[in-house]
Amino acid sequence: MEGAEARATRELIRRATPQRPVVFNGLRAFLVGGVICGVGQIFLRLYRGQGLPLREAATATSGTMILIGALLTGLGVYDRIGRQGGMGAFLPITGFANAIVSPAMEFKREGFILGVGARMFTVAGPVIVYATAVSVAVGAILWLLGRAG
């Protein structure tokens, strides 16, 4: 489409398209994300209480939350939490687990090698790729500045 009519159509579409409920979504993300982190805090306390230093307790907490996210995805519950919580469900590491487990389950019917194995990182892959690249760059800068180690 070209010209004035196309512009008028585009303007109509823009006007008729409902806006995302930014405030409502933000509130839901805050609450759901907050609650998930609250659950994480239970484990962090537990591991700290076992005498683990903060760094190791944090690693153990992440691992535990990944397990919980994987289990809830397997049980078919986590997609519903995500529907409500948006990034509140997706940004916590439980959501990262969901991003790995959900394609693994979904593409099982294409086999364990080319289905599960190959598709597992369709969404989580980019996260690992760029996290690795950025962290190496940050580490290199710190090293050049003499602040690493």
Partner: peptide, 17 residues
């Protein structure tokens, strides 16, 4: 869903459209 968008168990929030 699995062809055009995400795995069915993926935790995504659909926009109002």
């Amino acid at each position: 869903e699995r062809q055009y968008r995400y795995p069915t168990e993926f935790a995504t929030q659909p926009p109002p459209t």
